[in-house]
Nucleic acid binder design. Structure first.
Lengths: 232, 232
DNA sequence: ATAACATAGATAATCGATTATTTGCTGAAT
DNA sequence: ATTCAGCAAATAATCGATTATCTATGTTAT
């Protein structure tokens, strides 16, 4: 029998559209599809075992986050950004993140300090590359990297600014994936250590400067990663 | 007969979901619904004469832009932000827009200067209040206001930063609507004139300072406008 | 009277099928 | 050979109906 016994907090079987959305988002961020590839609702519906409506909803959400393009009456596609757009994303980060970092350093409390230390520790102990995942940064490292950078900013206590960071980070990560640029010579560990030290020492000037340099190098590693130019 | 003669560029009958989306967005931004009001797909579908699927797609887009909330299995609703969130939006603008304005002033070309002048002219000549629209700023003035502020920043030439501005502006306008705060004593005209002058004189320091003051006053006018506290 | 339970109605989520648009192909006309 | 109209297949967009979930109301046991 289909008794829907719901004793207080049930595992909360999430909506199908949520599941499809997460799957789609992960697939795109993981680089499963090449830039410009069509995302056909019917194919996705079949492989996910759901109807077109839920796929459509998920795709619309993905488009809203900039993880896919939509051409009316012509379907959805993995975005293929121009070099110019990659540079704009990087510049936006260089413009905004230092400002937020300064606020964070000024306002962050002890709990924030502790979380910065924890995030840095995890990042430093996670290998950036593992054989199984080829040329790409390991997914564990990518996540630890994101959490470290976000935690650095979380002291600002402003959810709107953090949401802005999240958007820029997502766009930036997409760029990193498509660039397939390994850049093994780069001293990630040192850069992140200096960031952590300056932040915990409440040295906003140094922290902001280190962050801008960090972002500039990231941007440099991404130039020339755009296969096509599909910008409006 | 249903011959779809398509001689080159046809009026391009847009998708229904696009129309519904625009209608929904306008209705929310115009303040047609009170914060917290449910946005029922069935009602909207009936009054728009479309199926549930298109309404659903439009609603998902609207949620993505922060113009509506979604509670899984519980439907969509007009967002009711907390006071804290309004302040965060205002702070985000104060943090980000001055930085972009500086870039814009540094990089803007003659065409940008001309567009700033045009936008300011239009704003200055548009009445902020008209009897027909009651206590609210007139929609013509609101649009001219948006265009002026955006044009000021457009010299930066960075679409990602401008998109960030657009998001913050939308959130900010929603706040203004819900606050229903007329604030007739405020010298909008003078503030905008000083902004224009400083920008065209390429005086970034003054322009940034004026902008921050402008935004601070806007924020002050919005405190105490949150009817409920539905923040996570 | 109150709290746990059951049931009915409303509404959200999903589905399967239909309609509309685009795209690629074929063949005739230049 | 090239261009362009006219089909045909693919796929995007939409619809009407079904299923799942929530909410409010009413009932019964303490």
């Amino acid at each position: 029998m289909t008794r829907t016994a719901h004793p207080s907090n049930f595992p909360a079987k999430q909506m199908l559209s949520e599941r499809v959305y997460a799957h789609l988002r992960d697939a795109i961020m993981r680089g499963d599809h090449a830039p410009g590839d069509a995302l056909k609702p019917q194919d996705i519906a079949k492989e996910q075992g759901v109807s077109l409506a839920v796929v459509r909803e998920a795709l619309v959400r993905v488009v809203g986050e900039g993880l896919a393009d939509r051409l009316p009456n012509r379907g959805f596609a993995v975005p293929s950004f121009s070099d110019r757009r990659w540079q704009e994303i990087a510049e936006a980060r260089r413009s905004i993140e230092p400002v937020v970092l300064r606020m964070s350093i000024e306002r962050g409390d002890v709990d924030w300090e502790a979380r910065v230390r924890a995030a840095h520790h995890r990042l430093a102990r996670t290998p950036a590359f593992v054989p199984e995942e080829g040329e790409y940064y390991s997914s564990a490292w990518s996540e630890a990297h994101r959490v470290f950078h976000r935690t650095l900013l979380e002291g600002c206590g402003n959810l709107v600014l953090l949401d802005t960071f999240d958007r820029l980070w997502t766009a930036s990560e997409l760029a990193r994936r498509f660039s397939a640029h390994r850049d093994p010579d780069r001293d990630h560990v040192g850069e992140h250590r200096r960031l952590e030290e300056a932040a915990l020492a409440r040295d906003a000037d140094t922290a902001a400067e280190v962050l801008v340099r960090h972002l500039t190098q990231t941007a440099a590693a991404l130039t020339g990663c755009a296969p096509q130019t599909t910008e409006a």
